[in-house]
Design a protein around this nucleic acid. Structure first.
Lengths: 121, 121
DNA sequence: CTGGATCCATAAGGATACTG
DNA sequence: CAGTATCCTTATGGATCCAG
């Protein structure tokens, strides 16, 4: 395993740009939630437990802007808006799911490490 | 592609825990930098461009606590401290490198999407 | 239902100075 | 060299109210 940062000295390298984007706590959860198919605004909010309406709106807009999500609005009363992963978004969901796999497999060990560390302190 | 969140309703699911941990902007960069082998404190700071000394210290300590990094101190003058990925850390580096690959391959399209979005606004 | 706009508390994080 | 401690500014993000 070698360093996977193309150029750690460069603040503008793609890896870093992506991290700036997904490092906001909610992006990954939303993309993950939409991996199962399109969902409405309220439904996403309900699934991503703990997100405020403000952050939901903000993050969704940012993701649409980035071409990760597509926003479809239906002129109904009451209004219905659905968000869905674009091809680009579905592609991103792939490496993210790898992360989730790692989490499921190894977060137990992390927890143990923490407790052990804290006992030693 | 289905949703990769084991239980989005659960704030304590492993995926979420991991995201809380790596969502801090520096963790991923540090783990990535150490993918090439052990490095000294100052050297990590130099490679992870833009990180402050405070965040470097803080993040390194958290990663050691989580069992991702090992800290080795040599009783020399001047002191020398090296950080190295543990097996667990090297394992984490794998899915992270997938993310980096995605970034290199697709961030260009994201950039285009942003410009297109901004023009339309 | 799907947001927009504001206000406000808290926390993240940079700059700086200091220490073994 | 490898941190620690402090101050202080900024950004994050929740709560609340309003609107189409």
């Amino acid at each position: 395993m070698t360093s996977f940062l193309p150029d750690p000295y460069d603040r503008d390298c793609p890896t870093r740009q992506l991290l700036d984007r997904i490092g906001d706590q909610w992006t990954v959860l939303i993309v993950g939630t939409l991996g199962g198919g399109p969902l409405r605004f309220t439904e996403i909010g309900r699934r991503v437990q703990g997100i405020s309406q403000k952050m939901l709106t903000q993050t969704l807009r940012a993701l649409v802007r980035d071409g990760i999500l597509e926003r479809r609005m239906y002129a109904e009363i009451p209004p219905r808006v659905e968000y869905e992963l674009t091809d680009l978004g579905r592609d991103l969901a792939e490496p993210l799911s790898m992360l989730a796999e790692w989490a499921k497999a190894h977060m137990g060990r992390v927890q143990e490490a923490r407790e052990s560390y804290d006992r030693a302190s």
